[in-house]
Design a protein around this nucleic acid. Structure first.
Length: 399
DNA sequence: TGCGATT
């Protein structure tokens, strides 16, 4: 059931809205690259991220005269054109209103980028800085369903602010969004920042985004920070321009949208698992003879600060090599599921071709089950390929 | 050999 937007008429009656005459125009903007990233977020809106505080909505314009456009973020995904008309029509007369949906998925998006975040809307008003201000004051922060919309001045679009968005990986897991901004702020004015976090644990995934005001600032940040170690970090970070999802084909988008873990089924691998005894596995993995529990392993880890391969704090990460180009997540669930609790699987794909790059990762909760899976699946013949399976190591940044 | 992460 699609939850409809709130009854705008009743909102108006409630007196929480200004209803003075206003002539405006609501349009959908279809851009290949967003020039106005949202500057704030919260736990209600958006995917799992570490968020800014939602500051003044008047953050992105330069001078008052240039604030001719408004931008609206965090609209509900199921919002309709008519509802938008009603929403902005409560402030003033709407001249036109058009939303753009993906041709294939029919998902509301003004830019395909928003497929992964939130639908946005540009509001172009015909005249009146006071009315723009009024629209912001009235509508910014309005709660619609589970969303809190943001209305703010849009920065004028220009070439200099395009492609100023950076993707950053290899960040220390302890780095906060504020620290990330501090690191990058020496290169220019940051419009938005974000650190991706594990949806379950809230732990940083070591990956984030920085959108600068201008592309030249982003370029300088890459020069200055790519491959460098942040203060106190042990590993260098990777800084590059972020992929623009709007370049993706609808087919690639669909495959990601509907990618979900297949149900585990008990197959021949489950029996295979039983052939191995925990002692043997521990012996293979660590060269120890005695049996000890996963709890004991954790104890050793925390006591000695030893970095046990594959242990990421949220489980045991397993590296799977020699997957076929068309391998998908379901094969990893099917292979590893019978050995125990699998919390995450990931096939690493080439961004452009969407084909598997030949490897993937599996996270398992319990050490003994992970070790069993490794011992059983390493050397396993999958199609015409022989898999190599081991605990994940950190090879990327080693000399 | 090959060890990610894209709002």
């Amino acid at each position: 059931m699609a939850v409809r937007l709130c009854d705008v008429a009743s909102l108006l009656r409630s007196g929480s809205w200004a209803a003075e005459p206003w002539t405006g125009q609501v349009i959908a903007a279809m851009e290949t690259q967003l020039s106005n990233g949202p500057s704030c977020n919260n736990t209600t809106n958006g995917p799992a991220t570490i968020s800014n505080n939602c500051s003044s909505p008047v953050e992105s314009g330069s001078i008052e005269d240039s604030k001719t456009n408004l931008i609206v973020n965090y609209l509900p995904q199921n919002m309709t054109q008519e509802e938008l008309k009603s929403l902005f029509g409560s402030i003033g007369e709407i001249e036109s209103c058009k939303l753009v949906r993906d041709k294939i998925t029919d998902i509301l998006c003004l830019d395909v980028f928003d497929l992964w975040t939130e639908p946005r809307l540009r509001v172009r008003q015909l005249r009146g800085s006071e009315r723009r201000r009024k629209a912001i004051n009235t509508l910014n922060g309005l709660r619609l369903q589970t969303k809190t919309i943001k209305v703010s001045y849009a920065r004028p679009s220009s070439a200099s602010i395009r492609d100023a968005n950076l993707y950053v990986s290899g960040l220390p897991k302890t780095m906060t969004q504020k620290e990330l901004e501090q690191l990058f702020s020496q290169y220019g004015r940051i419009i938005t920042s974000r650190i991706l976090v594990d949806q379950v644990t809230g732990v940083s995934r070591g990956v984030g985004f920085i959108r600068f005001d201008r592309r030249i600032e982003a370029e300088e940040a890459i020069k200055g920070l790519n491959g460098q170690k942040p203060p106190g970090a042990t590993e260098p970070i990777t800084v590059k321009f972020a992929n623009n999802p709007s370049q993706k084909t609808s087919q690639a988008l669909l495959s990601q949208l509907y990618q979900s873990p297949n149900r585990r089924y008990p197959g021949p691998l489950a029996q295979q698992a039983q052939r191995f005894r925990l002692d043997n596995l521990l012996n293979m993995a660590y060269g120890v003879k005695s049996r000890f529990s996963p709890m004991a392993i954790d104890g050793v880890t925390s006591l000695a600060g030893i970095n046990i391969p594959g242990h990421a704090g949220t489980g045991w990460c397993i590296f799977v090599y020699n997957l076929a180009p068309d391998a998908d997540e379901s094969i990893l669930w099917q292979m590893f599921g019978p050995f125990g609790a699998v919390t995450n699987v990931k096939v690493i794909r080439d961004f452009n071709t969407n084909k598997c790059k030949g490897f993937g990762f599996v996270t398992m909760t319990n050490y003994d089950e992970a070790a069993m899976a490794i011992a059983s699946l390493n050397g396993y013949r999958l199609g015409d390929r022989v898999l190599q399976v081991s605990f994940k190591t950190n090879k990327t940044h080693k000399a």
